[in-house]
Simulated scan of single mutants.
Amino acid sequence: MWRYEKRLQYPVNISQTNPKMAQFIISQYGGPDGEAAAALRYLSQRYAMPYEKGKAVLNDVGTEELGHFEIIGAIVHQLTRNLTPQEIEDSGFGPYYIDHTTGVWPQAAGGIPLNACEFQSKGDPITDLFEDLAAEQKARSTYDNILRVVKDPEVCDPIRFLREREIIHFQRFGEVLRDVQDRLSSRNFYAFNPAFDKPQARSGKTDS
């Protein structure tokens, strides 16, 4: 489906460890608005998308989100490698360390593990695309929150890149939504059941 070049979409080169910072950023690895959930959402929704342009965008963005997942994993890894026991204890990283050592594991900043119940693949293009637009904005606002509390320029640089890509994805899904709406002859947002809005025929029966 794609060619993997074995390099990050955007470079990550962090020289100073910071496990407390890693606990914030890991939310974009396995949190409710993170990159793993995004990739699963779009790559699942593409199967039911009836139009080729929409299917292509879902496939492209979903694949790119896997690359973003990899970038976040690299950030978390570089922020937590070679920690001393004292650094682990002082930073509050201990609970995570006890369960995962310094392995990168998909969870939210609050410790809740990745949960597929936090996103939808509904099978209706309008429903799915509105979810996708909201998802990109939620991811963008999460990156905004990270940039408010993280000041290390080596970390902020790739985070800013990822934030910019969320904005581009929002724009792409907006284009697809307009294309899908233009294709619906009924213009009532139902791709497969326009009869829902038609008056129902009377049976001719009367109440006794």
Rank of each mutant, 00 (worst) to 15 (best):
2 W>H: 13
2 W>I: 05
4 Y>G: 10
4 Y>Q: 10
8 L>I: 07
8 L>T: 07
9 Q>H: 09
11 P>F: 09
12 V>C: 11
13 N>W: 02
15 S>M: 01
15 S>H: 06
16 Q>Y: 13
16 Q>E: 15
18 N>Q: 07
19 P>N: 04
19 P>G: 03
19 P>T: 07
20 K>D: 14
22 A>N: 05
25 I>G: 03
25 I>D: 14
26 I>L: 06
26 I>M: 08
27 S>Y: 08
27 S>W: 02
28 Q>F: 12
28 Q>A: 13
28 Q>S: 14
30 G>F: 08
31 G>C: 11
32 P>L: 01
32 P>C: 02
32 P>E: 09
37 A>P: 02
40 L>N: 08
41 R>Y: 04
41 R>V: 00
42 Y>D: 08
45 Q>N: 08
45 Q>G: 01
45 Q>V: 00
48 A>I: 03
50 P>L: 06
50 P>T: 03
52 E>W: 00
55 K>V: 02
55 K>H: 10
57 V>H: 08
59 N>H: 12
60 D>F: 11
62 G>W: 02
62 G>Y: 00
64 E>F: 02
68 H>G: 06
73 G>F: 00
73 G>T: 02
75 I>R: 05
77 H>R: 15
78 Q>C: 02
80 T>N: 09
81 R>C: 01
84 T>L: 04
84 T>Q: 07
87 E>A: 06
89 E>K: 09
90 D>M: 12
93 F>P: 02
95 P>K: 13
95 P>N: 15
96 Y>A: 00
97 Y>H: 10
100 H>V: 01
100 H>S: 03
102 T>G: 05
105 W>A: 06
107 Q>R: 15
108 A>Q: 05
110 G>V: 00
112 I>Y: 12
114 L>C: 04
116 A>W: 04
116 A>F: 09
117 C>E: 15
121 S>C: 09
121 S>A: 09
123 G>E: 06
124 D>K: 08
124 D>M: 11
126 I>T: 06
126 I>H: 01
126 I>S: 02
127 T>A: 03
128 D>H: 00
131 E>V: 01
133 L>P: 03
135 A>M: 05
135 A>Y: 01
135 A>Q: 03
137 Q>W: 13
138 K>M: 10
138 K>S: 14
139 A>C: 11
141 S>T: 07
143 Y>R: 03
143 Y>L: 07
147 L>E: 13
149 V>R: 05
151 K>C: 01
152 D>K: 13
152 D>T: 07
156 C>D: 11
157 D>L: 04
159 I>Y: 09
159 I>T: 11
163 R>A: 01
164 E>A: 14
166 E>V: 01
168 I>D: 14
168 I>V: 12
168 I>R: 08
169 H>F: 02
169 H>Y: 03
171 Q>G: 14
173 F>L: 08
174 G>D: 13
175 E>F: 02
175 E>D: 10
176 V>Y: 08
177 L>E: 05
177 L>V: 08
177 L>Q: 15
179 D>V: 00
179 D>I: 01
181 Q>F: 09
182 D>P: 00
183 R>K: 13
183 R>M: 11
184 L>I: 14
185 S>L: 14
185 S>Q: 14
186 S>Y: 07
186 S>V: 04
186 S>D: 14
187 R>P: 06
191 A>D: 06
193 N>L: 13
194 P>Q: 10
198 K>E: 13
198 K>L: 15
199 P>M: 11
201 A>L: 12
201 A>T: 00
203 S>C: 05
203 S>I: 12
203 S>P: 00
203 S>F: 07
205 K>V: 15
207 D>W: 12
